[in-house]
Design a protein around this nucleic acid. Sequence first.
DNA 1: TTGAAAGCGCTAACAC
DNA 2: GTGTTAGCGCTTTCAA
Lengths: 342, 342
Amino acid sequence: MASLRDIADEVGVSISLVSRVLNNRMGSTGVRPELAERIRASAAAMNYLPNPAAVALSGGRQNVLGIFIHRIGIDGSGTIERTIEGVSLAARANHQRLLTSFYTDDDDFQQHDPIIRKTFMDGLLLVGIRHPELVSKLLSYRERGLPIATLHDEPIHDDLPNAGLDQIAIGRLTTEHLIERGCRRIVFACVRGIVMEQRITGYRKALRHAGLVDDPELLPKVREQTDQLHEEYGPESGRALVAGLLERGVTFDGVIAQSDAQAIGVINELAARRIDVPGQVRVIGMDNSPHCLLARVPLSSISGQLRERASTAIHMLLQLIRGEAAASVNLQPRLIARESTA
Amino acid sequence: MASLRDIADEVGVSISLVSRVLNNRMGSTGVRPELAERIRASAAAMNYLPNPAAVALSGGRQNVLGIFIHRIGIDGSGTIERTIEGVSLAARANHQRLLTSFYTDDDDFQQHDPIIRKTFMDGLLLVGIRHPELVSKLLSYRERGLPIATLHDEPIHDDLPNAGLDQIAIGRLTTEHLIERGCRRIVFACVRGIVMEQRITGYRKALRHAGLVDDPELLPKVREQTDQLHEEYGPESGRALVAGLLERGVTFDGVIAQSDAQAIGVINELAARRIDVPGQVRVIGMDNSPHCLLARVPLSSISGQLRERASTAIHMLLQLIRGEAAASVNLQPRLIARESTA
DNA sequence: TTGAAAGCGCTAACAC
DNA sequence: GTGTTAGCGCTTTCAA
């Protein structure tokens, strides 16, 4: 574990000179190029790497980003997996270490309070479900100088930049896709949550543009008894949706589900009733999860671009840390067509 | 950001005393209880928390564990997700911060070489697929004093303790389960990899115990052209398996797949051939992934106990860090029966 | 029972 | 151009 002192001794110069050379912090003055070269060579030869604790202690950056994750997406959608991987890669590319932690709710988040400080991390990235109850807490961290960015569906506050997804485009693209494939009566499943309105806006836009009617019957509410978000997006919700529609005598030739699991529930229920997918009804899901390939009919879906969003979020956070401004952005989703909408 | 000096000033004692009191490092001597109390009270009031960089720099622990993850399990099996979550919870419970990173192969792992040092972490936990090529590298880190534990299917080296799974039990329990449900000719899919032999041992044990014949035809090799492990465990491998068996005229009434995705491929192919599951053939998967509930017939499976293994691995690593010995262990898998083996 | 002082490895202001 | 010095916040010996 070579230190600056080792290099200084070997080259025969002072520690501070070595530090300045290796950090390119020469201010207005210079170094003799050949000396600088010898210093760099020695550092390389000794496999020198700054002691992060010492750097941090002497007032510098830590090069540590705190990543706090709330379980997102339903089990198996791969959402967390891809997000973490994306964050991890982006952090590595920017020479940042990651301090990862999971939390389940706002109470649990508060437990982390002690370590949410400048002494533990340079900035904080919140991932997953928004917790509006946390806003004041978060703003107080920010007041104390800790930069914060989020990776949520929607920004949680104007001052906390977010890497989101264009929710209107999700509604529009999925609907356009089904229209293109010949659907005329397209069901758009409605779950609870802040993004639904925008998705429906996109849905309606596409309908209007194609000159199709916007029948309220085609906007059925998915209402599981439970409060578990997870179940509202699960396969059972899809089965119930189909059952409800058919019971009410609603006719339809396309279904846009709010998750892949829900879409698979839809497909399974249709199959149980001998309704062919995609022959009689086309079905599309959301998330482009690994489930898509395991469904009895490979499932079309729309991708949340999680790796890209993760990378974007990291860049935003780094901007904030550098003292630059950063604004929320919404990435564009990408539609992946498979057999279920063929 | 209160420091020891702030507390010392307020109480009117020296910094070193405060340090010793708060760390309970009084050696053989003592403090006046009431003084200790005042120090502790002051620390609490000031919301004091040690500066981790300073602690690390002055030679103490960092309370940072490096977690290096190789993508494991097939996409969507939730393996990584559960593992990370388990590791994260266990680390938090033990007041350890987590330094997470992903790697894709041994070359990529080497890229991390610079930060695999005592100055960045107290210990290293390797998660995912074993890379035997890395053993010498890992041992060299260990020589330099960095404790290492692994969370692999199999230990990678005698000196690197591993939190594994009883692979014989996997073979035995799945087979016993199918026998119990009345199966007499049970197919056991054979993929490549180090654990297969043990799983087959378990399979044979169960057969023998039930007095069933061990027909080599029932041990078909899954051999995708590709080198992608991922495909060897994917749904297509399951479809191909069934197709191959039927082509060869092999009769069977049970199938044990090596992953849930493979099992779903098996079920889908059987369905395509109008063979009823579980009526004519019972099928069981492995991993107890979220896929199980999305299959057209809810899939029985066997759980890899990832959260428990993660916790075990963290404890092992902490033992090593404390200078204690730690030995590899194998946890017991747990069978979850669902409709596909009813 | 308590305090003083050195040192962990680094940065940055200032002096030469 | 380069070196000296102080200091970041803590732990730990040693002295009182």
